Simulated assay, not measured.
Amino acid sequence: MPDVVADGLHVLFCGINPGLMTAATGHHFARPGNRFWPVLHLSGFTPRLMKPSEQGELLSYGLGITNVVARATARADELSAEEYVEGGRLLSAKVERLRPRWLAVVGVTAYRAAFGDRKAQIGPQERTIGASRVWALPNPSGLNAHWTAATMAEEFGRLREAAQAQ
């Protein structure tokens, strides 16, 4: 699954791993029930609701997308602890190279597993990677039912405001 990245982004969003539909289409967060694209718009990151096939336009807004683990699965719980740890190591190297202002890991459980921070909560983290700050966001998967699109958009909006203030 190719990354949507460039040097010096405002925010590099990091999904857990590609789902099967994402892998089949080549577009991040492609599953129809995934709320990433609507939440990105509701939070003010994009001026309109974008389709997964328009992911390349994110670069014009200073945004990008990557994943913690490259392997596609039907569900994130199919990934091993070792894959998360190795993914965190590779992600750290990518962030050091690309130098985004913020790395936003979309899924606090994935953040905890990749970076060995079992007590991490949603929001800004103390960890930095090089000069990049880190934020853990709720997972926009439709399986994460205790977060609504509106409450996710509030948290994404907090990150947007922090990224703009920097």
Rank of each mutant, 00 (worst) to 15 (best):
I122H: 05
A153C: 12
H10W: 09
R71G: 06
T73W: 11
F29R: 04
R112P: 14
R112A: 13
E78I: 09
A76C: 13
R101P: 03
T109I: 14
H28C: 13
A74E: 15
S60W: 10
T73K: 15
P138H: 04
V105R: 08
E83A: 11
L159M: 11
A163K: 00
T66A: 12
P18L: 13
P52Q: 08
K51G: 06
A165M: 11
W147P: 00
L143F: 11
T128V: 11
L143E: 09
A76S: 15
R160D: 00
N34H: 08
F156E: 02
Q125Y: 10
V105H: 05
T151D: 09
C14R: 11
R97P: 01
G44I: 04
N17D: 03
M152C: 12
P100A: 10
H41W: 13
A6S: 12
L59S: 09
D117A: 08
A93L: 15
G19E: 13
A136H: 01
W135Y: 15
V105P: 02
L137C: 02
R101M: 10
Q121H: 07
M152K: 04
A30G: 03
A30I: 00
R133S: 03
M50D: 07
W102K: 05
A153M: 08
A24K: 07
G87Y: 05
Q55I: 06
S53M: 15
L49P: 06
A93S: 11
A23V: 00
G157A: 15
R133H: 05
A153L: 09
E161F: 01
T151W: 00
R99P: 05
R89K: 14
V69N: 02
A136K: 06
S43A: 15
A153V: 10
M152P: 00
P52E: 08
V11P: 02
T148P: 01
E82G: 06
R31M: 13
G62C: 02
W135I: 00
V68W: 01
L63K: 01
S43R: 00
L49Q: 14
N17A: 04
M1I: 12
R99H: 11
F115V: 12
H27Y: 15
A113E: 14
R97M: 12
R112T: 15
R35Y: 05
P138I: 15
R112L: 12
D3G: 04
E126C: 02
A110Q: 07
H28S: 13
